[in-house]
Design a protein around this nucleic acid. Structure first.
Length: 354
DNA sequence: TAGGCCATCTGGTCCT
DNA sequence: AGGACCAGATGGCCTA
């Protein structure tokens, strides 16, 4: 149960106990909908068709205060809110609130599922609702373009399509995923035979791609083509059903079946952070080290370094980072931030900083 | 502290 | 009548 939820229930009960539908308590409420709104329900419930001359709040006040200076209202007298009617209304309202809550939870779950199949997904760096929808739109658009052209996408162009209309932080996040998410499974030598759709992974010929098979992924940030696998049975068949996309290929770095959290946390500023332990809240929701319950067939989540045998934990991540520095002949004392800046910062910045 | 994002409550409308 | 859906209002949390 969320904090919000419990608080809401508490508030709901509080409002109920206040009995704000009672006429003599209406003017004392200083929160919630405008009083006129509250009376709208009242009037409808009472079938009070002749109550439009005055604001009903005023009417009640007038009646109660015996305001004889104002003309008496015409039309049928408003029905008294009996205790039974108040309770009926409250019960109905509480039920409706619960339904609405669960409806919104369902909507959020669906949105979460959508986040999981986006090109970049992070539990700790969740895209906002609007950004998720925008990215989804762009993603569909970009994939459609790939399908129509039948050519392997240009990395930068693809990224630009993905980031169209996104906020700067989200663009940075996507760019980070695209550039740092090199997966060994995409580096199989066989990729030379068929141009793969390297969405988020190595883009052949792309200047920022990680070129050599067997090179471990950069320590943090993962984005693979697994999110394309669910298209296998559809029009993407020819492109995606390439052996290079076998996600458990041992010769591709021995990436094991998914057994951990999804894409590691990425900071919106492009400075990648260390993987963190799942929060108690996340554990509660099944976000721990095991595969989430919402795992659906056909969708293979992103791998993280910790999922690679022998390379789990901060030490393994550090080892990967050291390997990357060595591979690119960079100073071994280079900080991770500098590394990111070196690899993507300046180039990506020129693309997205307008 | 302002602004963004979010969850919730609420009343209105439409549909079954 | 009751449920689903929607949009406005509100307040909390977080971050720049």
């Amino acid at each position: 149960m969320t904090k919000h939820y419990s608080k809401a229930v508490e508030m709901s009960e509080l409002v109920g106990s206040l009995g704000w539908m009672e006429e003599d308590t209406l003017s004392s409420q200083d929160e919630g909908p405008a009083e006129s709104d509250r009376y709208t329900i009242d009037a409808r419930e009472d079938g009070d068709a002749g109550s439009d001359e005055l604001d009903e709040g005023e009417q009640d006040e007038n009646e109660e205060n015996g305001a004889e200076k104002l003309p008496k209202r015409r039309g049928p007298k408003k029905k008294k809110m009996t205790k039974a009617r108040v309770e009926r209304f409250q019960a109905r309202r509480i039920k409706a609130n619960a339904r609405e809550r669960s409806r919104m939870h369902g909507l959020n779950d669906a949105l979460d599922n959508l986040r999981r199949v986006m090109p970049c997904y992070s539990k700790t760096q969740k895209l906002s609702k609007i950004e998720t929808l925008r990215l989804a739109r762009n993603y569909i658009w970009a994939l459609s373009e790939v399908l129509e052209s039948g050519e392997s996408p240009d990395g930068r162009g693809f990224m630009e399509m993905l980031c169209k209309g996104l906020s700067q932080p989200t663009s940075n996040l996507v760019a980070g995923c695209m550039q740092l998410g090199q997966q060994p499974l995409l580096l199989d030598k066989r990729e030379e035979k068929v141009a793969p759709v390297c969405v988020g992974g190595a883009i052949p010929g792309h200047p920022f791609s990680y070129p050599s098979p067997g090179l471990p992924s950069p320590p943090y940030g993962a984005m693979d083509a697994s999110h394309l696998l669910h298209l296998k049975s559809h029009s993407f068949k020819g492109l995606v059903e390439h052996p290079a996309y076998e996600h458990t290929s041992p010769e591709c770095g021995g990436t094991p079946p998914y057994d951990g959290p999804l894409t590691p946390p990425l900071s919106v500023s492009g400075n990648f952070t260390l993987k963190q332990e799942p929060s108690p809240h996340e554990i509660d929701k099944g976000y721990g080290s095991s595969a989430p319950a919402t795992h659906t067939a056909g969708f293979v989540p992103h791998y993280v370094p910790s999922a690679i045998p022998g390379l789990g934990g901060p030490q393994g991540q550090n080892a990967l980072f050291q390997t990357a520095l060595s591979r690119y002949e960079l100073p071994m004392d280079m900080t991770f931030d500098s590394y990111i800046q070196h690899m993507v910062g300046s180039q990506i910045g020129t693309v997205f900083n307008e």
